[in-house]
Nucleic acid binder design. Structure first.
Lengths: 103, 103
DNA sequence: TCTAATGGTAAGTAGTAACTTACCGTTAGT
DNA sequence: ACTAACGGTAAGTTACTACTTACCATTAGA
């Protein structure tokens, strides 16, 4: 499984997207992340593992706390992936338009 | 469920991503899409429905055929969503770096 | 009008994924 | 050293989703 494949699957889950968006606002430890979410702390840990494996977040130990933050490189990789298809899609649209004219 | 939420969930599935990537190369009818894929034609139809509902593809009837193509607007919407978090993540990184210096 | 081609939908199944509670290891402070 | 805080992991359950076959509606051509 390539990395951006994992990334799309990771952001496909609503709860995980909320975690991701909260981390986008500010880096946070797991307990604080779990507060305000409707799921348990272990669930958050599991989601963080998936996000980390997808290259979307990184973590840093600080005493007993573990601070998670977004990894911009993961986000950029997804952006680049989408860019490829955006370009292709635009080209296809252009071809279709030209074919239409030839009719 | 917002639209980009559906989009991420849609591209999270490997088979659906293959369908999406094949459509990126060229617009195609359902039967041709199903050829060369390891899943049945009805499965492809179901995937196309999900992709369409997510705003990632559009279809056009041509006789008995139904031609699917990528919708660049859907791709652009995802790109924009990611851009927001990319900016935020970079800002957070900058803040963290500055806080590090103050230590 | 009959037939073949195309593809969407219904119903059922099997595998996976998201969640829970319970448990354990590690670090900080007293 | 003992205790509390923090968080990762294991085990089990439930819900969902991707897939299959079977069926049906629509269109094109003979």
């Amino acid at each position: 499984m390539t990395n951006h494949a994992k990334a799309f699957a990771a952001l496909g889950d609503p709860t995980r997207r909320i975690v991701f968006e909260r981390l986008a606002k500010r880096p946070m430890c797991v307990g604080r992340l779990a507060n305000g979410l409707s799921v348990s702390r272990p669930a958050v840990s599991q989601h963080l593992k998936v996000l980390k494996d997808a290259g979307l977040v990184i973590d840093k130990e600080e005493g007993t706390r573990r601070i998670y933050r977004i990894d911009p490189r993961g986000v950029e990789a997804m952006r680049n992936y989408l860019d490829r298809f955006w370009d292709r899609a635009l080209a296809a649209f252009k071809d279709a338009a030209e074919a239409e004219e030839e009719t």
